[in-house]
Design a protein around this nucleic acid. Structure first.
Length: 602
RNA sequence: GCCGUUUUAGCUUAGUGGUAAAGCAACGGUUUCGUAAACCGUAGACGCAAGUUCGAUUCUUGCAAGCGGCUCCA
């Protein structure tokens, strides 16, 4: 534990050392016109903030234009980082001491008079004094506004156990409205081995990348003429359809009714729902020759409301569960697209449930049970997150609090750990999200359950209650997979492409040992096909070893090998994925076994 | 969208101011094989558009798409 604490200090201290290095390398650079892009003054490097983060640290700088041109010039940003890294090593080896001191804000303002971002931070800090850290034992003293803690001496830092990795832009204080600073990221560990192990691990993780596996296994692809929109290749579409079929069957059992609605709607529909005001910049919009404005649907809710409102509804119909899996389009910013994980065209396994207020909790529990069932089949780890009222919210604060309390209550009772993300709700209501990690450890929102008191009011939805009075239902928006695209992307990474038999695009491959065995192999293929098993015949003119290798690399669950021995005993030799040769079996016995596995979603 | 970065054959990569090398895959042939790569041969590429230059895949600029961040993410 002590160790853990010190690595935090090491990382944080390294961010100070990096700032010190950058200041020494680019101290006072004469003002030029072009350098005004930074802060209007551009006399040297300006410091933003520099915390420790998971696995390392970063620091944000407003670099003078000259420093940036160095970064882009001689050898690019790699050389630039190398130069800073070398300087940092030099500073670390000076055995600098980190000394903390509390000073008045007034004194701090004087001290940081050339650092506008520090001045802004000082202004925002509570209290009359602030703490600063001074590095001594070096040629040029370095002072930073910081609450610490730090290492006592840089001799606690192993100069071989850190490495600068990348340059990125980052908005000051995380707001797009502010200036973009240059953020330099570094990795840092206690020992050189830990650093090397981490780098190796990341390289390994890249092999699980769904974009690489998708190409290798011919599941999906992208084309530059449709950025952010996947092409589903035959094998990938099998997975997609199997997931949808499973989803459909399960939801029919749970009392859901599936609908399908227009993909393009007049803007008036989105004006009613509120999306036109809150979401227009993320919609694909087109205009007809007559000047009619249409939007490509970015979510299913408004259409579900129209279906609900198509006739009078009774309290006896509630909860009314309308599901659909239509294709949605969202004009996501170009820089946010990410393989299948963030796309512009996708299908949600959506449903809108119309309930009376007193039915919310029970319905949530039903949904949580569905989630549990689905996610345990795939055996993937997930966590819950509660998103509360955003800044740009619709309706009144009071009904929001009520809804948030209801969700919190449900999560508490579920017993599963959850986090709260403030202001992360949808504009119409709070939500519970399911998060899953990708191969390099990033969190992605998968399923979500959202409570909505607003949109039913917008559409003036009613049901006639037992007392004969018209009342407005509450809507629960919910997805289990999240989107088929993102789910398949994450699933591909977690399984490293080795899909369970029921999802595997090719479930078995039959390999005749030589040409003589082709007829027998074809006969087996025919039998498997008659039993609805996805099978391929691998009878190319290649060696057995080669054909096995290719099938293994395609992550096929079962390879059936047929030669003289098998013909004489009317069997096949079975090679199971990950297990190798598991012996021979009569063909109908194998069919029985694999059908059982498919049925049980193994 | 912003910052950084990448783009050479179907895939993975090499390389150069005088239009490019290889492995796998593909195709043709030889071989008919017992549990993760048989052998021989053939064909195939510098993301797009301008500029500089006698000449650009290489240098410059712009654009597009991908990747890592930031912001965003109903």
């Amino acid at each position: 534990m002590e160790q853990d604490k010190n690595i935090e200090n090491i990382r944080h201290s390294l961010s100070h050392i990096m700032a010190q290095a950058v200041l020494e390398l680019y101290p006072k650079i004469p003002t030029t016109k072009s350098s005004k892009i930074h802060d209007g003054k551009a006399i040297g490097t300006k410091l933003g903030m520099g915390p420790a983060i998971e696995n390392g640290f970063y620091y944000d700088f407003a670099l003078p234009a000259e420093a940036l041109s160095v970064a882009k010039g001689e050898g690019g940003s790699d050389k630039f980082l190398q130069k800073i890294e070398e300087k940092m090593k030099e500073l670390v080896l000076q055995n600098q001491k980190f000394i903390k001191k509390n000073i008045t804000k007034l004194a701090a303002k004087k001290l940081f008079k050339d650092q506008p971002y520090k001045l802004e931070l000082i202004k925002d800090l509570p209290g009359k004094t602030v703490s600063i850290y001074t590095n001594t034992g070096c040629l040029q003293k370095f002072v930073d506004l910081c609450k610490g803690p730090h290492v006592k001496n840089t001799n606690e830092i192993n100069p071989k156990a850190f490495k600068l990795t990348k340059i990125a832009g980052a908005y000051w204080k995380g707001s797009e409205k502010n200036k973009m600073l240059t953020r330099i990221y570094g990795l840092a560990f206690s020992t050189e081995k830990e650093l090397q192990d981490y780098i190796k691990m990341q390289e390994e993780a890249e092999k699980r990348d769904h974009r690489k596996l998708g190409q290798k296994l011919e599941l999906y692809m992208f084309h530059e003429t449709a950025p952010g929109m996947a092409y589903w290749l035959p094998k990938g579409l099998i997975i997609f359809n199997e997931l949808v079929n499973f989803w459909r069957a399960e939801h029919q059992k749970e009392g859901y009714q599936e609908i399908k609605s227009p993909l393009i709607n007049k803007k008036e529909l989105y004006q009613i729902s509120g999306h036109w005001d809150h979401y227009k910049e993320n919609m694909f919009v087109s205009e007809t020759e007559e000047g009619e404005i249409y939007g490509l649907k970015p979510m299913n809710c408004p259409n579900a409301m129209v279906v609900y409102d198509s006739r009078p509804r009774s309290y006896k119909e509630l909860p009314l569960r309308l599901s659909d899996s239509d294709t949605l389009h969202r004009f996501e910013k170009s820089g946010t697209l990410n393989g299948l994980l963030r796309v512009r065209e996708f299908s949600q396994d959506d449903a809108h449930i119309f309930v009376k207020e007193e039915q919310i909790e029970e319905e949530y529990n039903r949904i949580l049970a569905i989630i549990k069932k689905f996610y345990s089949i795939f055996n993937i780890e997930y966590s819950f997150r509660l998103g509360t009222r955003p800044k740009d919210f619709m309706g009144d604060a009071k009904s929001w609090s009520k809804a948030e309390d209801a969700l919190k209550n449900i999560l508490e009772k579920s017993g599963k750990k959850y986090t709260i993300e403030k202001r992360d709700g949808a504009f119409y209501g709070p939500k519970i999200d399911i998060l899953m990690k990708d191969s390099i450890g990033r969190d992605w929102q998968m399923g979500t359950i959202q409570l909505d008191f607003q949109i039913p009011k917008k559409f003036n939805l009613k049901y006639i209650d037992v007392d004969g009075k018209a009342k407005t239902p509450v809507v629960i928006h919910r997805v289990i997979y999240g989107s088929l695209e993102r789910f398949i992307g994450i699933l591909t990474e977690h399984l490293i492409g080795a899909f369970p038999v029921w999802l595997a695009p090719v479930q078995t491959v039959v390999i005749p040992i030589s040409e003589k065995h082709d007829n027998y192999a074809s006969e087996i293929v025919k039998q498997l096909k008659e039993n609805n098993i996805r099978v391929e015949l691998k009878n190319e003119n290649e060696t057995l070893g080669k054909k096995i290798r290719e099938a293994e690399m395609q992550k096929i669950p079962y390879l059936l090998i047929a030669g003289d021995k098998e013909i004489s005993t009317k069997t096949v030799s079975i090679r199971e994925r990950g297990k190798g040769d598991v012996g021979t079996m009569a063909i109908d016995k194998f069919i029985e076994k694999i059908r059982e596995e498919i049925k049980n979603k193994k």
